[in-house]
Nucleic acid binder design. Structure first.
Length: 583
RNA sequence: GGGCCCGUAGUCUAGUGGACAAGGCGCGAGGCUUCGGACCUCGUUUUCGCGGGUUCGAAACCCGCCGGGCUCACCA
C-alpha cells in the first residue's frame, strides 16, 4: 500500500525522499505525504500549487489499494481502498503469510551474561528481556539468529563466593543462586587482607584446574530456572574457561598483534603490556591507550572481550566443543562440534556504563581491518533499573527483596487474586496457569515498554499494574477474540468495509510487519509494544461499537476478529508473552 | 576538564522536520434486556528544562546555558 503510493509519487517527483504520515482526521484521508513542500522549491511555486500539480499528474495513473488522492492545501492525502486491501490482507494473515524474505546474515545476540554467583535481580532482568525480545524479532524477520550467554566462570566474584561457600555456614536449603548471593554479600563485608589473599589463591587454582566449574553450573542452573519462567532461553552458553582451554583466545591474541596500532610497549608506564593505541581516534583524551594484555601476560577484561568478538565474528580458526544441557548447548571440554559463532551481525546487550569499552572493541575490529564487521557490531546500551531510594548493587546486597524470583512470586499472587475474583468458575489448575502467564507477561511488558535509554525506577504499583498500557490488556483483547471465534465459523464474504472502526482495524493490522521491521532496524523493541497496544485499543473500540455475531456483516467482521487474534498472538510471542484463550 | 545519555501535564511514558503534541496512571462524569467491564466513551491537566539560531514549518536539527546520570584503570 505505502509502496504503491510511493511508486505513484516517485513517477512524478523523481528522486527525493518520500515519507508518509497519518492525517489528523480520517475525513482528510488515510495517510499523507508532504512531498509538495519539497517540490515547491524546485518548481518555484507555493506548496499548495505544487500539490495541485502533482495530483493532476496522478489522475491518469492506475491504482490498486489506493482509491483516491486529493490535496488538502499543500498536503497530498491518500484514501485507501479498504475493500481491496482488506480482502488481500486478511487472506494473508489467516494463512500467516507475512511476506518476509529470508535474510542471509547470521545475527548473534548476547544477553544476560550475569556473573554466576548470585540470583538475578531487576537490573539483570532488563538485560535479559531486551535481548530475548530483540532476538525474537530478528527470528521472526527470518534472520539466522543465535543467542549467547557469556559465563565468566573464572572471575574474582566467583572466587569470592566459592571461598565463602567453603568457609562460612549458611542455610543450605535455599535455592542455590540465592544462597550464593547471600554468601557473596557476607564475604564482601568480612573480607580483610588475609581473606583476600586466600581468594586470590583460589582464583588462580580455578584458572589452572577448573575446580569451580561444577559450582558455577549449579548456580547457572538456578538462574536459568528463573529466566525460563519468563520464557527466556539461549542457544549456547559460552564459558570463559572453554575459550581459554580451546586456545581460541591465544589464537585471537596472535591475530591482534598483527595490527600496527596494537603494540607491545617497550618503555614508559605501560612497559611490557600489549596496548591498543587510540591517540589518533581520541586526541582529546588524557590517556587514550587501552591495555589488552597486562605486563604479567594475563588479559584485561577488554582484551578478553576483543578476543571473544574475533571468535563471534568467525575470525579465528579454532572452535570449542559443546554438550547439550537440557535444551541449551554449553561449551565443554569434550562433546560435539557445532557451528556456533561465525556471525555477520553481533548485538551485545550491555549496560550504558560500558559504552566506552564496547566502543574500544568495535575500534579493535577496525584497527585489524575488519571494517564490515565493525560496522555490524552493535552495543545495545540500556539504562539501569533502580529502586526509588538507591541503585541495585550485587556487593552491598540492595537487591535483597527485589530478585526476579521474588518479583515473579509477588506478581503471581496478585494475578492469582485477580483470576480468583473474576473467574471463580475455572478449575484450580487453569487458574494457576492463567495467573502465571499474566504475571510473567506483566513483568516482561513493563520492562520492555520503555525505550532502553530511559532509566526505570522500580515501583511495585507499576510492575503489578494489570490495566491500561500493560500485558493483561493485550492478553484480554486476545481472549476476547478467541471467545467470539468459538461461537461461530469463518466463512467467505464479499468485502464491504464501510465502518470507520473496520477501516481503522484493517489499517492497523497492515502496519504489523512494518512496525516490527522498524523495531528490528532501530533495535528498539518497545516499538512493538507500542504497536500492539495500539492494535488492542483499536480492536476494543471496534468491539464496543460494532456487533460481530448476528450482524449483517458477520462473515467479514468475524474474519477481522480472526486476523486480529492471529496478529495479537504473533506480537505477544515476539514479546515472549503467552496469548491466553481465556482469562 | 573531554565524551555520551536523559529533561514532554500531578505522575510515568510515546513521538529523530509537517496539519490542533499522543497514550497510561491519577482525578471527575457516563456506558452491560448487548459477542467477556482486566473493556469502552467523554472531561481534567503540557509556554515539550531555559535562551538564541536554521527552516515555508522545530518537542525533534545547530550553538550556548541549567538540572540529573554514566564514563574517561595493568578493576570487572
Amino acid at each position: 500500500m505505502y509502496k504503491e503510493a510511493e511508486e505513484l509519487l516517485r513517477s512524478i517527483v523523481g528522486d527525493i525522499e518520500i515519507v508518509f504520515s497519518d492525517t489528523p482526521d480520517p475525513k482528510l484521508g488515510d495517510f499523507s505525504s508532504t512531498v509538495a513542500f519539497t517540490m515547491a522549491k524546485k518548481m518555484k511555486k507555493n506548496p499548495k500549487e505544487a500539490a495541485e500539480e502533482i495530483i493532476s499528474n496522478l489522475k491518469t495513473k492506475k491504482m490498486g489499494y489506493i482509491k483516491e488522492i486529493r490535496n488538502v492545501g499543500p498536503y497530498i492525502n491518500f484514501f485507501i481502498n479498504y475493500d481491496a486491501l482488506g480482502h488481500d490482507l486478511l487472506k494473508n494473515i489467516l494463512n500467516e503469510k507475512w511476506e518476509i524474505e529470508e535474510k542471509k546474515e547470521k545475527v548473534i545476540v548476547e544477553h544476560t551474561s550475569t556473573n554466576p554467583n548470585k540470583p538475578l535481580h531487576m537490573g539483570h532482568l532488563r538485560n535479559a528481556i531486551l535481548g530475548d525480545t530483540l532476538a525474537r524479532i530478528f527470528k521472526f524477520l527470518r534472520y539466522n539468529t543465535e543467542i549467547q550467554n557469556y559465563i565468566d566462570d573464572l572471575g574474582i566474584q566467583v572466587a569470592e563466593t566459592l571461598w565463602g561457600y567453603k568457609n562460612l555456614k549458611f542455610d543450605e536449603n535455599k535455592k542455590f543462586d540465592h544462597l550464593l548471593g547471600e554468601i557473596y554479600v557476607e564475604v564482601e563485608k568480612i573480607k580483610d587482607y588475609k581473606i583476600e589473599k586466600e581468594i586470590r589463591a583460589l582464583n588462580k587454582e580455578m584458572e589452572e584446574s577448573g575446580i569451580s566449574r561444577e559450582f558455577v553450573e549449579r548456580c547457572l542452573k538456578a538462574q536459568l530456572e528463573t529466566v525460563s519462567e519468563l520464557n527466556i532461553s539461549y542457544d549456547v552458553l559460552v564459558f570463559e574457561s572453554d575459550l581459554i582451554r580451546s586456545k581460541i583466545f591465544d589464537e585471537a591474541y596472535e591475530k591482534i598483534k598483527q595490527s600496527k596500532d596494537i603494540v607491545l610497549e617497550e618503555g614508559g608506564e605501560n612497559i611490557g603490556c600489549l596496548v591498543m593505541k587510540l591517540g589518533n581516534i581520541f586526541p582529546d583524551m588524557e590517556n587514550p591507550d587501552k591495555i589488552l594484555i597486562r605486563s604479567d601476560g594475563t588479559a584485561t577484561y577488554t582484551g578478553k572481550d576483543v578476543a571473544y568478538h574475533l571468535w563471534k565474528f568467525g575470525l579465528v580458526e579454532r572452535n570449542m566443543r559443546y554438550l547439550k544441557w537440557n535444551s541449551i548447548y554449553k561449551s565443554f571440554s569434550e562433546g560435539e562440534t557445532r557451528d556456533f559463532g561465525n556471525g555477520d551481525i553481533v548485538i551485545n546487550v550491555i549496560g550504558v556504563e560500558q559504552i566506552y569499552p564496547q566502543e574500544v572493541v568495535k575500534l579493535s575490529l577496525e584497527l585489524l581491518g575488519y571494517y564490515e564487521k565493525a560496522e555490524n557490531f552493535y552495543h545495545l546500551a540500556y539504562e539501569h533499573v533502580s529502586l526509588p531510594e538507591e541503585k541495585f548493587s550485587g556487593r552491598k546486597g540492595t537487591w535483597i527483596g527485589y530478585t526476579v524470583d521474588e518479583l515473579l512470586e509477588e506478581a503471581f499472587l496478585k494475578a492469582k487474586e485477580e483470576v480468583e475474583s473474576r473467574r471463580s468458575d475455572l478449575p484450580e489448575e487453569k487458574k494457576v496457569k492463567i495467573a502465571k502467564a499474566v504475571a510473567s507477561g506483566a513483568i516482561r511488558y513493563n520492562i520492555i515498554k520503555y525505550a532502553p535509554e530511559k532509566k526505570i525506577t522500580f515501583r511495585w504499583k507499576d510492575a503489578l499494574n494489570f490495566e491500561g498500557d500493560s500485558s493483561p490488556y493485550l492478553q484480554y483483547a486476545h481472549a476476547r477474540c478467541c471467545s467470539i471465534l468459538k461461537k461461530a465459523e469463518l466463512s467467505d464474504f464479499i468485502p464491504n468495509f464501510s465502518d470507520s472502526e473496520e477501516k481503522e482495524l484493517i489499517k492497523t493490522l497492515y502496519e504489523f510487519v512494518i512496525e516490527t521491521e522498524k523495531a528490528c532496524n532501530m533495535k528498539r523493541s518497545h516499538i512493538v509494544t507500542k504497536y500492539l497496544n495500539d492494535l488492542a485499543t483499536v480492536f476494543n473500540s471496534f468491539y464496543n461499537s460494532l456487533k460481530v455475531l448476528g450482524s449483517e456483516k458477520e462473515a467479514q467482521r468475524l474474519t477481522l476478529v480472526k486476523a486480529t487474534q492471529i496478529v495479537l498472538k504473533k506480537g505477544l510471542f515476539l514479546l515472549g508473552i503467552e496469548a491466553l484463550e481465556e482469562m
